[in-house]
Design a binder for these strands. Structure first.
Lengths: 222, 222
DNA sequence: GTGGAAATTCATTGCCCGATGAATTAGTGG
DNA sequence: CCACTAATTCATCGGGCAATGAATTTCCAC
């Protein structure tokens, strides 16, 4: 059991244990609601160790977030030759990453991005924009069409992440990856290479932004 | 400064003041990190009033979430007779609500809910679950199939909300509603009434949960 | 106007949090 | 095997939190 105090016997890579426990806890509760006591318990370690190794809760969080995955790199690996299989590749890759331990880290990033509109901007710029562009790059589309199809793909993939991982809605949260791929991949593929049903021609965002107008405003005050 | 205790003189719709203050506070800090003290201060009111009017912090949050819009009510209005037009109705209704001033309030709720698993649970229970069931109700499906198809619809709609409103990614954020409906409605319709491509039969969530496996765990301990 | 009901604040309770520092034990170099 | 350093736990502090109940004031029916 919990022996007395003092240095532990054998190996004990306590720092890593804390880091992993913190990653899970932050993913689960967000930064504010996660507690050092809980993290310590998950790591099987006294909460004081966290201060010993990381100083403060904030610094621990930074340590967790600074060990991210490069989405482009992951995506690029195993890109299929056939453009008609690209949708399947995207969905499967997404599921693989998010079902892995790295998924917790990704959850941390997504959750913490919601803390401010600046966080949302970061998520938009560095993840969505780059990832989506990487994803549709093999298709050799025009600039406008790449953006538009990329956005559509993003809606389906972002929605999958939301429902399955962030909100964990059943039954989708517990459905086998193969089944998810089977159902969603064709839809994603349609956004990539299918014929898009449009009433009055493609929504050619007429060069630059022309914000539609009286929408609630993409306010950045938060 | 603040006069003594006892009932206030004039009008004082305290309940509404608290509700508005709570909406802002939850939006800014998320459910867990928002404090009743802060909400009370924003509303210019003693925190004890919150307990007087709402009971607990959680009930206050529910009141905030349910205030902007009763999704069921909005959805029910204008339900098409033809099940094959249900997808279009869902997408169009969603865009109408989110493009309206109520959309700002909804955005607040979504942002704050995503930040912790607790907030996510509340969103899942009180909004998503009900909306999904209402949405697929006209189809007269079996329990399992309704849940499954509802989840799929939710991925597409939630993704639309994320990309267009929460992250405000261009060009989708500035695309005319009609164009969005034209492109997305067929996909949603497919989830509602189309034939779903499945490898080994429908993912009949085998009664109860069978958590896929070693994911970060949907633990509810927190 | 007077008596009760509703609204509001104050004072307090108990809990949990993050942080700190002393006490204790295990490794390590000589 | 002895000193020294690093790792770990324990006990505790001050603070902020949600919640409760009593005290006080206004409103309203009669």
């Amino acid at each position: 059991m919990t022996g007395g105090r003092g240095r532990r016997p054998g190996a004990g890579d306590t720092r890593s244990l804390i880091l992993a426990a913190a990653r899970d806890a932050f993913a689960e509760h967000g930064f504010e609601a996660a507690t050092l006591r809980d993290i310590g318990q998950r790591a099987g370690v006294d909460p004081a160790m966290i201060h010993h190794w990381f100083g403060t809760k904030e610094k621990l969080f930074q340590a967790v977030v600074n060990a991210p995955v490069d989405p482009q790199e992951v995506l690029a690996a195993g890109l299929p030759d056939d453009p008609e299989r690209l949708g399947e590749h995207l969905v499967r890759t997404l599921l693989t990453v998010w079902d892995s331990p790295q998924g917790s880290a990704a959850l941390v990033v997504v959750r913490s991005s919601m803390r401010s509109s600046r966080g949302a901007a970061l998520l938009r710029e560095f993840v969505l924009a780059r990832v989506i562009r990487t994803a549709v790059a093999p298709l050799g589309l025009t600039e406008d069409e790449a953006l538009w199809r990329g956005n559509l793909v993003a809606t389906q993939l972002a929605g999958l992440v939301m429902v399955r991982y962030v909100l964990a809605v059943e039954p989708l949260a517990s459905t086998a990856p193969d089944d998810v791929v089977a159902v969603l991949a064709p839809q994603v593929q349609h956004y990539l290479t299918g014929e898009l049903a449009l009433t009055g021609g493609p929504p050619r965002s007429p060069s630059g932004a022309t914000p539609r107008t009286p929408r609630p405003t993409p306010r950045s005050s938060g």
